[in-house]
Nucleic acid binder design. Structure first.
Length: 184
DNA sequence: AAGTAGATGTTCT
DNA sequence: GAACATCTACTTA
């Protein structure tokens, strides 16, 4: 399946089924930086923890652009976090990229992350954006425009996906909308 | 190994 | 003012 077909199914479906896919950013020199998506969280308008729960605002407007767009927001006054927008235009749903395992451009990520040990490079949503160089200027972008690239899982990988409660929220904590890749 | 505090800006009450 | 889809450094055991 194409990644767009997965995103169009909605954020919960996409958050689960994009685990194992590879997310890359194209650098200005043309090289790729990124890796395997290992952790995601889904958000929908019905969900009280979602930025879109109270409708469209200036900050969250990219979440209403429809499947395939990128929503980047500024978190806790310090960090950028990126989502892939899912569902149809106007539906206001997306999935937060919480973690990847780098497999391209690792040296660039180490520099951007101030030479953290590799295990800590991209194991959190703020860390992912810092390592990939994603900021507010990427808000509203489309992968089709070439800066973001999504590739299917490496066929040799055995994918075991686990659903858990989401991290860092205080409302609608009962939803099992965090998905992690359990490697074996 | 586990817990706490501090940084810091935007959004909402 | 308070809360916040976070991260790091520093404490205590």
């Amino acid at each position: 399946m194409e990644y767009m077909d997965i995103l169009r199914q909605g954020s919960v479906y996409a958050a689960e089924h994009l685990i194992g896919w590879r997310l890359y950013v194209r650098e200005v020199d043309g090289s790729l930086t990124g890796g395997v998506i290992t952790e995601t969280e889904a958000y929908t308008p019905e969900d009280k923890a979602s930025h879109t729960h109270k409708g469209e605002t200036l900050r969250n407007s990219a979440m209403f652009l429809g499947a395939g767009h990128v929503y980047v927001y500024f978190s806790y006054g310090m960090h950028w976090c990126m989502n892939l927008v899912a569902g149809s235009a106007g539906s206001g749903q997306g999935l937060l990229i919480r973690g990847i395992v780098p497999d391209k451009g690792i040296e660039k990520m180490r520099q951007r992350r101030n030479y953290q040990v590799d295990k800590l490079l991209t194991n959190g949503p703020g860390k992912v954006c810092q390592a990939l160089g994603v900021t507010g200027t990427d808000n509203g972008a489309l992968p089709a425009e070439g800066r973001f690239i999504l590739l299917p899982p490496d066929g040799s990988l055995r994918l075991a996906v686990t659903a858990t409660p989401r991290v860092g929220i205080s409302r609608d904590t009962h939803r099992l909308w965090r998905f992690v890749l359990a490697t074996e």
